[in-house]
């Protein structure tokens, strides 16, 4: 069976030549939850956007392959690529406030995609959407479907977006910090929902987060990123039991613990970062030589 998502040696640069992704390799098996952790600016979101084909126009992929269920995204014509990505993937976005169109009712937004992209009948789409809303524990689908996004709470909107993401039965969902914009009490419910739907539907998830606590709860495998480079990749349990890379250890040490709420927050160890910086500079040097 081919991997759900297979990224090999993916490098992307900014117009000034600075690399934002440094030979990233990543393989997500069907039905697997893969966490991408790292500080902000580490390129986690960039990987997600690259997979979904929505990189900002200033970022250019210069090297590497992305295979979505055995299909090489780089070789497809733009239109075929869009169709493939649209049918097999979905996004659970970070900010449920801006991810829904403010001037359209929830119902029309949700069914639209099924009807226009997958060619379903309106009735079938409606049934499907209601089924999904039930799965995300929305008890009054009639009201929600008729609402405009601003009439719902943040948690409700995120549920709607999760339902929308799963509705078309994608093979891969990119979840881009889906709980960051929510308040802590809602975060847990939303995480639980994502995991539950992921199990039931057997969908692979690329879960972008900066929260190691979340990683431990939901993922099978983890890739730790720093400055657009995968510094460590391991089974989640193994990673937490014995982190191999000094940066991973430093990151874990910097995680605040509830057992000692009055301890001051620790930044990631400077010495480790300095070591990483030289490592990356050397790698960039080596990478530039064959690439001119």
């Amino acid at each position: 069976m081919s991997a759900c998502l297979d990224i090999r040696d993916l490098s992307a640069v900014l117009p000034n030549g600075q690399r934002v992704l440094r030979s990233v390799s990543l393989c997500v098996q069907p039905g697997e939850v893969r966490a991408l952790v790292g500080e902000s600016g580490a390129g986690k979101t960039m990987i997600g956007k690259a997979v979904l084909g929505v990189l900002p126009s200033s970022v250019r992929i210069v090297e590497g392959d992305m295979m979505l269920e055995g299909e090489d995204l780089g070789r497809l014509q733009p239109k075929a690529r869009r169709t493939l990505i649209g049918a097999r993937t979905a996004l659970i976005p970070q900010d449920p406030l801006t991810a829904l169109n403010p001037s359209r009712r929830i119902g029309s937004q949700m069914t639209d995609r099924l009807v226009r992209i997958l060619g379903w009948s309106g009735e079938r789409a409606d049934t499907r959407i209601r089924q999904l809303l039930d799965e995300v524990q929305i008890r009054d689908p009639d009201r929600v479907l008729k609402s405009y996004p601003h009439e719902l709470s943040g948690g409700m909107r995120q549920r709607v977006l999760i339902a929308a993401a799963f509705a078309a039965e994608p093979r891969l969902i990119v979840a881009d910090e889906p709980t960051t914009a929510l308040d802590v009490t809602v975060q847990k419910q939303i995480l639980r929902l994502i995991v539950q739907l992921q199990r039931e539907h057997g969908t692979a998830i690329l879960f972008v987060t900066h929260d190691l606590g979340v990683v431990a709860k939901i993922s099978q495998k983890v890739s730790v990123l720093y400055a657009g480079k995968v510094v460590e990749e391991a089974e989640t349990a193994a990673l937490f039991a014995s982190p191999q890379h000094p940066y991973t250890r430093a990151l874990m040490a910097a995680t605040p613990r509830y057992t000692d709420p009055f301890a001051s927050l620790k930044p990631v160890d400077e010495a480790v970062l300095a070591g990483l910086a030289t490592e990356i500079a050397a790698a960039d040097q080596a990478w530039r030589r064959p690439h001119g």
């Binding site: 929505v54 169709t83 990505i85 649209g86 996004l91 970070q94 900010d95 829904l100």
Partner: peptide
């Protein structure tokens, strides 16, 4: 620049 536009692009519109 809103996410809903990006979402629509991902969906393939």
């Amino acid at each position: 620049r809103m996410d809903y536009v990006e979402n629509a692009r991902i969906a393939g519109y």
